[in-house]
Simulated scan of single mutants.
Amino acid sequence: MCETGADPHDVLTAMPRPAAGPAVDPIALEPVDEIKITTLVDNVFDALLTGDERTRRASSGAVVAAPQFETGRTTPGMIAEHGFSALVTVRRADRSTTLLFDTGRSPDAMLTNADRLGIDLSGLHGVVLSHGHYDHAGGLAGLAGRQGVRALPMVVHPRVWTRRRLAIPGGTTEELPTLSKRALEGEGFAVIERRDPSLLVDGSVLITGEVDRTTEFERGMPPPHQAWTGSEWAHDPLVIDDQALVVHVRDRGLVVLTGCGHAGVINIVRQAQRLTGIERLHALVGGLHLSGPAFEPVIGPTLAALTELAPSLVVPGHCTGWRAQHAMAGAMPDAWVQGSSGTTYRLTAAV
C-alpha cells in the first residue's frame, strides 16, 4: 500500500518485546483429521487453473442472466478484488466446524462468490478478523444484511478499531475506513477482543493473537502508514492487531492461514511453532505482504527462511505481489500453488 521505506531504527524501537525460545506454557492444540480452506475472495481469479488431489478449483456451474447471449444467460466465474476472505472447515472424527476468516473488501464479493460456489454461510460457527484493514472487513456488511448474525462470535484483537491513514509524502493523504464496534454489535455480532492467543473449536483452532516480532528483516509498514494516537497521527509500522489462524493436521504439522501477514510471515510461523511446540510446517496459505518497493527487499530473506521450513503446500495470495510469487514458484515448485478466488484446499491427516 505504501511506496517508501521505513527507518529500521524507528521500526525496531517501536516493536513489542520478542519472546524467543519455547513458550512457558505451551498451548495444547488438538490435532484435526482434516482442514478445508476455501478462498472466497482473493486478488485474482483464473478459470483455467487445474486442480489435484488436494486442490479443487471453482467450477463454472453458476449461471446468471445475460440477454446479450442467444441463451439469455452466461457463467460469470468468481469475483476477484484487492481483499481476502477464506472459509475454514475443520473436522475431528465425524464432527465439523466452520469459521469465516476475513470477509474481503466489498460488501457483496464474498457473498456472491459463496452463492456461486453453492456455499451456505448460515451455518457459520464464528468469524475471525486477521486485522482491521478494510480490505479484510468490508464483507461484514453484506454478511449481516443477508441473514442476520445474532450472537455470532467474532474474534478480534483489541486494536482492530484503530484509525489509520496513508499519508504519501508529496502526494495525497487518505484516511482508511475504520471498523465500528458499536455498529457490529448492533448488527448482532458477539465481539470477543483478545490480545493473547485464543483456542477455538474444542481446542483445535488457534488464533495467534499478538505476534512477537523476532526476525531482523520483517520491519513492518513504512512511514506513510499512520495511526491516530488520540492526539496526533504517528507512524504505525506494526499493525499490532495482525493475527493468524493455526491448525494442527494430525501427523502432518501446522497449517497457518494469514490475512496480510503484516507481522511478517516468518514471525507468524515461528510464533505458531513456539506456542504449540510443533515444529513441522505443513501448509501456509494467505497474504504475505511482499509487494511494492518497501517490501520487495524482504523477499530474499523471507524465501530463505520459508524454504528451510520446507512446507508441503504454499499458497501466497492477496498482497504477496508478483515478484514474490515468481520467486516462491521457482524456489519451491512442488509446494507453491497459484491462488484464485473460489479454490478449496483440502489437507488431511496421514493414513
Rank of each mutant, 00 (worst) to 15 (best):
Glu53Arg: 15
Ala324Cys: 06
Val128Asn: 04
Gly188Lys: 00
Thr71Ser: 15
Ile240Ala: 10
Ile37His: 01
Arg280Met: 03
Val191Arg: 12
Ala190Leu: 14
Val246Trp: 09
Arg323Leu: 14
Thr258Gly: 09
Ala227Met: 12
Val315Phe: 04
Arg146Met: 13
Ala86Arg: 11
Trp322Val: 11
Leu152Asn: 06
Gln68Val: 11
Arg165Glu: 05
Val337Trp: 07
Leu49Tyr: 05
Thr214Ala: 08
Pro301Cys: 09
Thr302Ile: 09
Ile278Ala: 06
Glu216Thr: 08
His131Ile: 06
Thr13Ala: 10
Ala137Thr: 15
Ile35Gly: 02
Gly330Arg: 13
Ala294Asn: 07
Ala28Gln: 13
Gly139Leu: 13
Gly188Asn: 08
Pro22Tyr: 15
Phe189Ile: 08
His235Val: 07
Ala283Met: 09
Lys181Gly: 09
Gly286Pro: 09
Val351Glu: 14
Ala65Ile: 10
Ala304Trp: 00
Gly170Ile: 00
Gly186Tyr: 14
His318Pro: 00
Ala47Met: 08
Ile37Phe: 01
His326Glu: 15
Leu100Val: 03
Glu216Asn: 04
Ser341Pro: 01
Ile192Gln: 14
Arg105Gln: 09
Arg91Gly: 05
Gly5Gln: 11
Ile266Tyr: 05
Thr302Leu: 15
Ala6Ser: 11
Val351Pro: 15
His157Asn: 04
Ser291Asn: 12
Pro16Met: 06
Pro293Asp: 04
Val44Glu: 03
Ala86Asn: 08
Glu175Thr: 11
Ile168Cys: 02
Val239Pro: 00
Leu99Glu: 01
Glu218Val: 03
Trp322Glu: 15
His136Ala: 09
Val256Trp: 08
Lys181Glu: 12
Gly339Met: 10
Leu121Phe: 03
Ala183Cys: 02
Gly339Asp: 15
Met15Arg: 09
Leu40Asp: 05
Pro333Leu: 10
Thr50Ala: 14
His318Tyr: 14
Asp115Thr: 10
Pro224Met: 02
Ser231Pro: 00
Gly330Lys: 14
Ala263Trp: 01
Thr75Leu: 04
Leu152Cys: 08
Ala190Asp: 13
Asp46Gln: 11
Met154Phe: 07
Gly171His: 04
Ala19Pro: 10
Thr97Asn: 01
Asn113Lys: 03
Glu175Ala: 15
Arg164Gln: 06
Glu185Ser: 13
Glu81Met: 14
Gly287Cys: 12
Pro311Leu: 13
Lys181Pro: 00
Val246Thr: 07
Pro224Val: 02
Leu121Ser: 11
Pro107Tyr: 05
Thr13Gln: 12
Ala327Asn: 05
Val128Arg: 10
Leu347Gly: 07
Ser85Asn: 04
Leu124Lys: 13
Cys319Gln: 08
Trp233Lys: 10
Arg280Phe: 08
Thr214Val: 11
